[in-house]
Simulated assay, not measured.
Amino acid sequence: MAPEHKLAHAAFTIYQDTEPPEFWTNYFGVSPSRAGAKGQPRLMPSGMMSSIPWRQGTWIVSSAEAIMSDDLTPHLRYLVGHLGLPRADLRELIERTCAQMRFFCYWDNESGDRVPDVPDDIRTMMEAMGGTVEIDEYR
């Protein structure tokens, strides 16, 4: 039996070229779902090697395999807990490494009647740490 297609998931992502991906793994104490340094070969989710290397350093932790929900809130709360957010020194690290940090949310809205649920406290927390919450909606 094939798994059901989930209508939502989220990923915490840091993009930067100052520190290697292992820096973020050690900082959070969490293994990434995907990571790579600028210029390194890029392994695709399919297991195939891309002909295009990483264009910038990337460190990603996804909720897709851990949470079974079609709402964003459980995915985002999972990532907050799993990564120990908020962290008092994270904003300074993001600034020092010239990084971009975000929650990237997948939102399937083929029916056109679903409204993404991002809790205000999570938006406020990410902004305070220097990050953003982005929703990639599919119709």
Rank of each mutant, 00 (worst) to 15 (best):
M1P: 15
H5E: 14
K6S: 05
H9L: 06
A10L: 07
A10P: 07
F12H: 05
T13N: 09
I14N: 07
Y15T: 06
Q16G: 09
D17Q: 06
E19D: 12
E19K: 15
P21S: 01
E22V: 15
E22A: 13
F23Q: 06
N26S: 13
G29F: 07
V30Q: 01
V30E: 01
P32S: 07
P32E: 01
R34M: 10
R34A: 12
G36N: 02
K38Y: 06
G39H: 08
G39Y: 02
G39R: 07
Q40L: 01
Q40N: 04
Q40P: 00
P41H: 11
R42C: 10
R42L: 09
R42A: 11
R42N: 12
M44H: 12
S46W: 00
S46P: 05
S46I: 02
G47M: 04
M49R: 15
S50H: 09
S50E: 06
I52P: 05
P53G: 05
P53K: 03
R55C: 09
T58E: 13
T58H: 13
T58C: 13
W59I: 03
W59H: 07
S62R: 08
E65T: 13
A66S: 09
A66W: 00
A66P: 02
I67N: 02
M68F: 14
M68I: 15
S69F: 05
S69E: 02
D71R: 09
P74W: 04
H75M: 02
H75A: 02
L79T: 04
L79H: 03
V80C: 11
G81T: 01
G81M: 05
L83Q: 02
L85C: 06
P86D: 07
R87V: 09
R87H: 05
R87I: 09
D89S: 10
D89Q: 05
L90R: 00
R91C: 13
R91G: 11
R91F: 13
R91T: 15
R91H: 15
E95G: 05
E95C: 08
E95Y: 08
R96M: 15
R96G: 10
T97K: 08
C98H: 14
A99H: 00
Q100R: 15
Q100V: 14
Q100E: 13
M101K: 03
F104T: 13
F104Q: 12
C105A: 03
C105L: 00
Y106A: 12
D108N: 14
D108E: 15
N109F: 02
G112Q: 01
G112S: 06
D113T: 09
R114G: 02
R114P: 05
V115P: 01
D117P: 05
V118R: 10
V118S: 14
V118D: 14
P119E: 08
D120N: 03
D120E: 11
D121A: 03
D121E: 10
I122D: 11
T124R: 12
M125K: 04
M126H: 05
M126I: 08
E127R: 13
E127I: 10
A128H: 06
M129V: 10
G130K: 00
G130A: 07
G131K: 00
T132E: 12
E134T: 08
E134Q: 13
I135L: 01
I135N: 00
I135D: 00
E137H: 12
Y138G: 11
Y138K: 12
Y138V: 11
